[in-house]
Write a protein that binds this DNA or RNA. Structure first.
Lengths: 241, 241
DNA sequence: TCGATTTGTCTAATAGAATAGACAACTATT
DNA sequence: AATAGTTGTCTATTCTATTAGACAAATCGA
C-alpha cells in the first residue's frame, strides 16, 4: 500500500511506513523469504527520506517481521496472519489447529469480584453477584496472539481459576464441570489501539491495533456460562465468521 | 481509559489522548451531554501538559465528538457506536434500522475489470474473468460509516452498477435480478489503519482505525454472487456476530 | 579483481511535539 | 459585585521527527 505524506497528523511518518509494510506482509502481498524493495525505492514510494524508511525497517526488524542483510537487502522473516474461525461452535484451540506448531495459554492472574452491570447482564446474574475473573495470554509459535479476560459465575465455577491454570483449555475445564458441549451465543467485535500494558504483554510496538471480541458462551440448555473479552493483535490474527 | 506516557512510540501524545477520550465516548462510558473532566484534571490524568490536552480536545471538537464552552467546560456531543449484526442472513440496511435516523448510500464509481486470483476464488470464477467492481460509501445521520468495494460476475450482473446507483440497497438490486433471497457464506474480519483516501472520504482523523470485513454472499442454491470488501471506522461501528 | 548495488553510520540543519508560565475572557455561585 | 473555576491565547524553551549529504562496509555478478 502507498501512504501519501500525512504531515502533522500526530502519527510519525516512520510509523505509518512501518504499518504499511507490515500490512503488505501479514496480508500476504509479501511472502516469507521475499526481498523488500531497497531503502532508496521505499523512500521514493513513501515520499520520505531514506533515514525515515530505515527507522521504519528497524522497528519491523525488532518485531521479527523483517531482517536486513548488509549488501544484499532486507528480507521478510515472519508468516502471515492466523485465522480464528468464529461460529456457533467456537473453540479457540481447535480453530487454530494446523496454523501454528505450538499453542500455549498462560493464566496471568485471577480474582473473585462483584459483577458490573455489563457482566451481570451477559451472564444472566444480578448486578453485584460474585464472579470469577481470570486474565490469560495465549502464545502461538512464540508470538503472543491473544490477551483475554474471562468472567464466570462464582456459584457455578468456584475453582475455575485453578482448573484453567492446570488444563490450559477452556473446553476441557468446562468438560471437567460436566459441560460436554457449549455454544457461542454472541460475539461483539470492535477495534482500538493497544494500551501500554497490552503493548508490553503482547510484544507489540506502541500504537498497534487490537481486534477486540466480547463473547458470551452458553451451555446446551442456553444458560450463559462465560463472558470473555479477548484482544487479538490485528497484525497477527483475523477473525473468520 | 488511562494512557501512560509512551514517549518516542511514533504516536503523538495528543493523539493518544484524543483516542482514549473518544474511546470513553463511543464505548459508552461518557454519554451525550456529559461534561468532560476539566483540562487541568485531564492533563494530570494523562500526565501531560494542559496544552497537549487542549490539542487533543481540539481534534475531537473538529470531529464533532465534543464541544468546548468557555467558562463552563467541555461537553460530549456525539452518540455511541452503531452495531452491525452479521449472521447467515446479513442485511446492511436492515441491521442498522432503528440505530440511525437516516442511512444513505452513494455509488462513488464503477468499472469492469478482470478478476484477480483472490476475487475469482471467492466468486467461483476463472482468474481473469470479467467482473463488475463498484465503490460505495454509506452515511448514517451525516456521519460516514462504511466505505465498501464490491465485485460481482459481469456475466450474471452486467448492469449492477447502474442499478445500485439507482436503488441504493444491495438487497433490492439482487431482487431486481430475481434473487429473492441470499445468504452470507463467509465473513473475514481484520483491522488496520485508514489510508489517506479512506481518511478523507470517511471524514476521519489521520491514524484512525478501520474494521475490515471481506464478505462472500451466495444465492439460495449456494452459488457465490458477490464479494465485498467493507471498511468501517472502528470508532463509529462495531460488528456483532 | 573490479564496479555496481545495497545496507550501515556519522554529522548537520529545519520543522513539529511537548512542556512551562502568565494572563485574558467567560460562567456560575455566593 | 465579588469570587472561584473554566476555557482561550500568548510567549518561550526543550526534545523529537524529518530531511539532507557524505562515506564506509558488505554482497554479487561480470
Amino acid at each position: 500500500m502507498t501512504v501519501s505524506k500525512d504531515v502533522s497528523g500526530g502519527v510519525a511518518l516512520w510509523r505509518q511506513i512501518a504499518d504499511a509494510i507490515r500490512l503488505d506482509i501479514v496480508g500476504g502481498k509479501l511472502a516469507s523469504g521475499d526481498r523488500l524493495a531497497t531503502e532508496a525505492v521505499l523512500a521514493e514510494r513513501f515520499s520520505a527520506n531514506r533515514h525515515t524508511v530505515r527507522r521504519a525497517l528497524a522497528v519491523l526488524a525488532e518485531e521479527g517481521v523483517v531482517g536486513a542483510e548488509q549488501g544484499r537487502g532486507t528480507f521478510v522473516r515472519s508468516a502471515r496472519r492466523l485465522s480464528y474461525p468464529i461460529g456457533r461452535r467456537t473453540r479457540f484451540r481447535e480453530g487454530l489447529r494446523g496454523q501454528a506448531d505450538s499453542l500455549t495459554s498462560y493464566s496471568l492472574s485471577d480474582r473473585i469480584e462483584n459483577a458490573t452491570a455489563t457482566i451481570a447482564a451477559a451472564l444472566g446474574l444480578k448486578p453485584g453477584a460474585k464472579v470469577v475473573r481470570t486474565e490469560g495470554l495465549s502464545i502461538a509459535d512464540g508470538r503472543p496472539i491473544s490477551r483475554s479476560t474471562t468472567w464466570l459465575s462464582y456459584r457455578l465455577f468456584p475453582d475455575f481459576a485453578e482448573r484453567i491454570a492446570r488444563l490450559q483449555s477452556t473446553t476441557e475445564v468446562f468438560a471437567s464441570y460436566g459441560i460436554v458441549d457449549y455454544a457461542r451465543a454472541s460475539t461483539r467485535i470492535s477495534a482500538r489501539h493497544a494500551d501500554v500494558e497490552e503493548t508490553k504483554l503482547l510484544g507489540l510496538s506502541p500504537g498497534a491495533i487490537l481486534l477486540v471480541s466480547e463473547a458470551v458462551d452458553v451451555d446446551s440448555s442456553g444458560i450463559p456460562i462465560s463472558y470473555a473479552l479477548s484482544r487479538f493483535p490485528a497484525e497477527r490474527m483475523e477473525l473468520v465468521v
